[in-house]
Design a protein around this nucleic acid. Structure first.
Lengths: 342, 342
DNA sequence: CCATGCAATGTGAGCGATCACATTTTGTGA
DNA sequence: TCACAAAATGTGATCGCTCACATTGCATGG
């Protein structure tokens, strides 16, 4: 592959002039044309390694993603990528299934060896935070999480507020026993959603039944739903509403309830979280809490740019999710001649 | 940040000895220990830019992803990442929403500037192939696509065979008018699935009604389902089965059919494609064609490694997807006293 | 005790760009 | 026409590492 000297020779100029053409510095149009022609002829592409070496700027950002390809993380990641590209940054990704300290550290190690200018943590796994807590990382780190930890930049959607929105909606419909199917224990977001559910129940003086934990996946929602129905914890005189921590688990729940002969929302109301594109087509369409992941990803990059450009960090702003009411929720005790969701 | 000379000085050795420690060459244990201590003390990490410059090996692979975060691409990408990491490669991602030639070319340009050792194309957009066709790329390129194009490494799941499997299942159940909701026109996979559907129908001498194109998303399935039902193209004496090109569109379809008062599988059978984790919880559970995306991603890396290690390319093997029969399909004319899916 | 050979370590060059600074060319007004 | 500043271009050093080769250290055998 050709280098800058080859181009310079072919164009009959010095390597520095080629460098100037590359970096849009002052070069006479005629000279620039000759250089451009040489570049095209040799199919020359400047080596970013050489450039990074001398400028001490890699123009790269390291992205750390963990776990399965869930809806939220995938969308956030893609939006972040897009934004990074638009800002002229390369994104190097280090994904891993397990989040043990060792693989986390080695991933970060490799990224820092690349001299990435910043690190982005997409999946908010509590273990991930513990892993990075020990390391002294000398680049800005931005993450999407809403529990208010210290020590790094944070951009978030207010999970706590979203959960309260969902539960308040159920309370407003007259439900008095509201169960919660929470996310996995390692998830920061799951913990925040649970806290929102709990807080809202306590504020209304309602009983807090210990929540069951799912895996974020539909199958776990189905398993939990089956158990709830078989133990009689839900329906007929017992809990009339379930707040599920995401939409995928909700569809499993709907399936299980249907299998058990319980009607949604007749016997039990269900609220999800995320508003994935499919949830409006569930049977019945799912009441849920919408999160704007694309916006989240874009804001992460924006926050990072602020710091990378040497400006003071932005005040952390938590976006508020939005309640989307659909047919899966209804009044606790349906009155005769009354519309559902009236 | 410390460099190799700083470490050498602190350890009382030459920079070359430090380099040897870094690269596991012969160094006396005592010397190695001193160097390691210096590395730890200075929090030293070798610069991959400097290393790449001199070795002419970046140890990086460029990943190009386009479009929305769909289930298949996301999973393939993650699996590929994992495999690349395991093989000691860094993955730099260039994602973009639009797939016009210009942004495609600029993305590739940037990656090649990084001196990536290979390129990976995850989303099989026909425009993407046209875009790369013109470029002379001097690194191996691997892509996941099944149409048998030339000029690059290809790893795939046999979409054509999968579609035939689905349609044959419907034909076996006695359906004689089988509609198809295909994917977007730009998708190579969508075209292959359509071809499989068409081929199977023709092999059985059944009528081929022009398929309607969706967007891969549930909403488009709903819109198409609503139209089919309202024009009377489906159910009551007309088409009794629909082959939908992915599971997301299928749930929209199920929703629309249910809204129109048509019963699945009583009035119309529906088959999807992909077997996403939610499809078993659809109402009714969806008969679909399972694809192993994780395996696909891993095989892409495997194929790449073969070439990167200087061995002859592997023969392209097409994985065959698997038909998963569930409750959304039944005999065309249900016989009395006979089980569904008997 | 010294020549011999191999292991361990050191020295200097160079990868391909940019930076700082030196030099040449060009344009302008007196 | 010439002085002189500004614009355009060139020169050499440098980033942090690895490579090729030179040198040193140390055990071994005659």
């Amino acid at each position: 592959m050709a280098n800058i000297t080859d181009v310079a020779k072919l164009a009959g100029v010095s390597h520095q002039t080629v460098s100037r053409v590359l970096n849009d510095a002052a070069v006479r149009p005629a000279t620039r044309a000759r250089v451009d022609a040489a570049i095209r002829e040799l199919n020359y592409r400047p080596s970013s390694a050489a450039r990074a070496l001398v400028t001490r700027k890699s123009n790269a950002i390291g992205l750390i993603a963990t776990g399965a390809p869930l809806y939220g993380p995938s969308n956030t990641m893609l939006a972040f990528n897009e934004a990074a590209r638009a800002a002229g940054y390369q994104v190097t990704i280090a994904s891993m299934t397990s989040v043990d300290r060792a693989s986390m550290v080695s991933a970060i190690e490799v990224l820092l060896g690349q001299r990435v200018e910043a690190l982005v943590l997409i999946v908010a796994d509590v273990a991930a935070f513990d892993a990075i807590a020990g390391l002294d990382i000398d680049v800005p780190l931005v993450t999407a999480e809403s529990s208010g930890r210290e020590g790094f930049l944070s951009v978030s959607i207010d999970q706590f507020a979203g959960a309260r929105l969902a539960v308040r909606h159920l309370i407003g419909l007259g439900h008095t026993e509201i169960l919660h199917v929470k996310g996995p224990d390692w998830s920061v977001d799951a913990a925040e959603r649970e806290r929102g559910w709990r807080t809202e129940l306590e504020a209304s003086g309602l009983a807090v039944v210990p929540p069951l934990a799912g895996t974020w996946l539909a199958d776990s929602g189905y398993a939990i739903g089956t158990e709830l129905a078989s133990t009689g914890a839900v329906g007929a005189g017992r809990a009339t509403a379930i707040f599920s921590a995401n939409d995928q688990m909700s569809i499993g729940l709907l399936h299980a309830l249907s299998d058990a002969g319980l009607r949604v929302p007749g016997d039990v109301s269900v609220v999800g979280f995320d508003d994935i594109p499919e949830s409006v087509h569930y049977s019945p369409p799912l009441t849920t809490v919408r999160q704007d992941f694309a916006d989240l990803g874009a804001r992460m990059m924006q926050t990072l740019l602020q710091v990378l450009d040497g400006r003071p960090p932005l005040d952390p702003v938590q976006a508020t999710p939005e309640l989307i009411v659909r047919a899966s929720t209804a009044r606790a005790i349906p009155l005769p001649n009354r519309e559902v969701n009236a």
